[in-house]
Each structure stands twice: as structure tokens, then as C-alpha cells.
Amino acid sequence: MNKVTTISLAGNAYQVEEAGYERLTTYLADARAALAGNPDAEEIIRDLEAAIGEKLARRMGPHANVASEAQVAEALEEMGPVDPSAGAERAAKAQGDAGAGPKRLYNLPSKAVVCGVCAGIAAYFDLDPTVVRLAFVAATLLTGGGWILFYAIMAVFVPYAKTPEEEARAAGAPFTAEEVVARAKEGWAQLKKSGAEWKRYAREEKRRRREEALAWRRSDRDYGYRYYRHGPTFLEELIQLAIVVAILAAVYAFIPETRGVYHALGADIQQAWAWLNARVAR
């Protein structure tokens, strides 16, 4: 007597002896490992499952409805181990094309005049950095200085290439259409995920606040005094602000690489201020 397990192969149910089930699990796990990185892995696995199912059905005959371990072993022997080379070759090719990974936009401090924003853009679009810089200067003049804000945003939010790999990726081979679609999908999935997370966080935060408010009210009643009812006081806010300023100042003082960003930001704020004043005055 053997224990029997019901399994589904490519959507069809089969009954197999438990030892056979274990063999199948191992085979499919190996197949998955061999196909790791292959974009069609799931589809191939499904085809393999369907083929195993057909082999089992052929072996069981009309009067048996359970596949023995020996029958499973035979079927798997016929299938042969999954050849990883087809997918691996492709994955390696994709890697080779893009150097150390997909191309992406970096600021390039090693080639920088100010923060390396223009150098990064030039590398990304395969242009001469001087051309990009001239375009930026022209844009700045045309927008009456407003373009500098764009530069500042880029300087702050675009990551800086720190390692040689990152610098290589800054000018990596262009994407293929497939990669663009894959990345867009990935980005959208992440966005959806983070959106859901944010919603959950907001809900929890709301609930927490309500509970806190209730607790305060209760403590009011119980102890007869008001405790921290109106949120932080002006003084407390001032202290928080001071802490933030102190941290920013410390970053400026101890991490010299960031100074370019501060200077650029300072200049931009001055520019923006002057631009605003000019508008208001008129």
C-alpha cells in the first residue's frame, strides 16, 4: 500500500504515489533553477508539466488511475534534464549589451564643471558635454534664470555616479524596446505597491491619531489636567527646525562633495528670489 497525492500538471489533475510526487517536485525545482532568468521560464515549465502529464496518462492505461513511483521516474527519465544553455546564452547576451546593467541617468562628478548634471545627460544621450552645457546656458538665459531651478532639481534628485560601474552605466548601451516595456511594467507595479502601502500607512496613521486623541481626552477626565493637547508648541517646532539646520550644516562641513549642491541651490534660490522680486515690483 502506498500513500497517494493528487497533483495538477498544467491544469490537469493526476494521482501519483507520494514518492513519485517527490521526484516530480525535485524535477520541476531543478527545471526552474535551470531556467532562472529566462523570461519565458513559467511558460516552459507549463509545457514541461503538460508533457509529463501526457507521459503519465499514456503509462497508466485505462484501468489504473494512479501513477506509480516507477512510472513517474520513467517519464522523467524520458523528459531528460532541462537544458539551461538556451536561456543562459540569452541572459548573458543581454548582460553583455548593457555593460554592467541597464543604462541610467547619473550625475558625473568626475567630469563635472558644477555638479556633473550636464555631463551625465551628455553621457546618457551620447552627446558632447559642451553642447549640453551650452544648451543649458542658453536655456537659462531664455528663461530668465528659471532653468537653473531645473538644474538644481537634477543636481539634488539624480543619483551621483560614485563607482566605475555606475559611470559605465551612465553611458551604457541604449535600451531595447523589450527592456523599456519591462522596466515600465516594473515601475508601474512598484508604484501600485507603494500606493497601496501609502494608503495603508495613511489609514493606520489616522486611526493612531484618533486613538491618541481619545486617550488624551480620557486622561483629561481622569487626572483633571490637559496634557499636550495642541500638538507641538512654537518653541518645540523651533527646536526641530534648529536640529534640521544643524544636520544640513554638518553635512556641508563634513562631506565636501555635497558642497556643489548647496552652492548651486543657494545660487538658484537667490536667482528665484530676484526673479520673483522683479515680477512683484512690476
Binding site: E43, D47, L48, P84
Partner: peptide, 16 residues
């Protein structure tokens, strides 16, 4: 002469 384990990944690659 070959087996599913070799042919299926090859077919998938050829389709790609």
C-alpha cells in the same frame, strides 16, 4: 534525438 528537457527551452528561445 533529444528530449523535452532540451527541446522546450530551445523552442522557447527560437520563439523569443
Amino acid at each position: 534525438a533529444t528530449q523535452e528537457g532540451t527541446l522546450y527551452p530551445l523552442l522557447s528561445k527560437m520563439r523569443q
